[in-house]
Write a protein that binds this DNA or RNA. Structure first.
Lengths: 350, 350
DNA sequence: GTGAAAGCGCTAACAG
DNA sequence: CTGTTAGCGCTTTCAC
């Protein structure tokens, strides 16, 4: 008994059942009753098909104009929780809905996105799930619009003009405001943001709101005073902890003037706390530290680490639901959801 | 200028160029010179195609018997570093090699695997990258064998009999031996393994070698004495830290008799250290603790946490290389690689 | 040098 | 009730 499909076509089944291929096709597609085909014949066909392990060739189905039951997942890579759960999680959810998923790394590069979208079009995917952290170039938006169903996850607000996608906005601004408010209320006067310079493009959505918040509070919001740009490459093995720790040493974090630190990932926060402690600065007494992503393990630190949390389960639920909606009614007016992130206060923030 | 493919077919290009479709097809496939088609004609066709943004329909290509340039990634989901890097990483590597990838969560369930493999066959993938932590059921092996190229990543040794896949074995045994040796050499006498009971299936590859090592050292290797089974479900948001911490409280870890702990994930190690410390047990003085996965952040703990490390960059390199090899020469005799994990000693282990 | 024809596996009219 | 036909977009073989 050969494993399955390759070789076994409708023709094979038809021959074995002594019927025409289209008859068999119709029966296998459940349209037998509708056409008044005898139950016996149908049962026989089903049995033969099952015995042979028949499975329709997906490529042929797609070519013949049916849906491909395929969705493209175009996501930026990233080793950070909870974003690193996204490919498998969304993939699994859609799989349960009867879809297969292509996984593509957008690399946050518009050219790659454009190329990937073309490739997905070529493969006739039924929908696209697209995660974008930066403003969407017009060409990319245009390319997205060609798909029957698309769900867009964005870390920045999206102008809805002329956009066929359902948008889910992961809003970080309120959380950052809360952090700065907290800093001020607990007597901090010189907050600083720690961020990777090479990653600066993707961190604009954090730096901007942070400095806005400082300004609003009447604190120094100058670039020199508030940004600690970590000058290091993206580690090949995604060991951001080491990258940050090394950078703190190389760039002498301790020489800067600050009493509060907002780190753009929890790995940086862990590294900062350890480094500062070694240099004799107490956390949170001398320096308040807040991370980002709310990686579960940071709860176990001493001190436990404050962070920004993305309610990812809720967001994933939303993505799944919206995708299914769009798939069902591609012509419905696309909607807009907001999924605000939250500041989680813990010991390190004082 | 419409975005791309849908609508633009070979026919369109042929019409615009004033030629037959097959001629155009041949030219676009670079067989123009070979057939003695005038350079001018060829240039013109290429230009027309480019202007129209022509892209061959992948489904049609596949149907017509060409390779699909598609690979199925059948992986167990998992929130743990570095396994959580795998989907995106492998996907990106293969993408750079000109392939698109289907991502499928095997859920470590043979039925799901079988079903997924059939689905992949139906889609005529060129190859399969399969990660398996447990013994491979015969049916799954058989199903795997139907693909022209498959690379199998396994956490347990694989009998090579009659197997068309290239195998990459992630060997954890030496690392576990090293841990137990270390425990003994530093005077520990009652080591215990902490593992999720619901996950027990996937943890056999750790429990077995651990008890074997204890036995070899002449220590108690009884099930009751050496296994602390965490009785909790898999958290929906993958927050294993909380699951373990709560379980330690509920099951009163402190009542067990042990002086060394091998935790089957770093999250458990973090939780254990914090919990034990709160109960007045010092780490490593009273209890040695070792985690698993070498999550970067654990370096920043106080004490820094010992762990088992998988050289994942090397492993990913291997996966990519082997997959490309198999894709090129499906008929070559499949090979076998070993990628042993390593014990990384840090403060928590004493 | 270029076009016509068959076939990949399936669906969807349309006949019988 | 069942078989025939055309067509999806492409490759490939074979005539003109």
């Amino acid at each position: 008994m050969k494993a399955s499909a390759p070789g076994i076509t409708l023709k094979t089944v038809a021959a074995k059942a002594g019927l025409g291929r289209s008859t068999v096709g119709l029966i296998l597609n459940g349209r037998g009753d509708e056409l008044g085909i005898p139950a016996e014949t149908q049962a026989k066909v089903h049995k033969v098909a099952a015995n042979l392990g028949y499975r329709p060739n997906s490529l042929a189905l797609g070519l013949a104009g049916k849906k491909t039951q395929t969705i493209g997942l175009i996501l930026p890579s990233g080793p950070f929780y909870p974003q690193n759960l996204m490919p498998q999680d969304i993939s699994l959810r859609l799989h349960r809905r009867g879809y297969q998923t292509y996984l593509v790394d957008s690399l946050q590069d518009p050219d790659v996105m454009l190329e990937s979208l073309k490739e997905m079009a070529t493969r006739r995917v039924d929908g696209i799930c697209f995660h974008m952290k930066l403003p969407i170039p017009p060409k990319v938006r245009e390319a997205l619009n060609q798909f029957p169903a698309t769900v867009l996850i964005s870390n920045i607000p999206i102008p809805r003009t002329d956009f066929r996608a359902h948008v889910i906005y992961l809003d970080m601004v309120p959380a950052i405001d809360d952090i700065v408010d907290h800093f001020v209320q607990t007597g901090r006067r010189r907050p600083m943001i720690v961020t990777s310079v090479n990653d600066a493009m993707t961190n604009l959505e954090k730096i901007g709101p942070f400095r806005d918040a400082l300004r609003r509070q009447g604190l120094d919001a100058s670039e020199e005073g508030t940004i600690f740009g970590v000058n290091a490459g993206i580690p090949r093995d995604s060991d951001y902890y080491t990258v940050f720790r090394d950078a703190f040493e190389a760039q002498r974090l301790e020489d800067r003037d600050f009493d509060a630190l907002f780190c753009t990932c929890d790995e940086a926060a862990v590294a900062a706390i350890r480094y500062l402690t070694e240099k004799g600065r107490r956390v949170p007494d001398d320096v308040a530290v807040v991370g980002l992503n709310n990686t579960p393990m940071i709860q176990g630190y001493k001190p436990s680490i404050a962070s920004i949390s993305w309610n990812h389960v809720e967001a994933f639920d939303l993505i799944e639901a919206r995708m299914v909606e769009r798939l069902k009614k591609p012509d419905a007016v696309p909607g807009y959801d907001e999924a605000p992130l939250k500041f989680i206060r813990r010991e390190s923030a004082g």
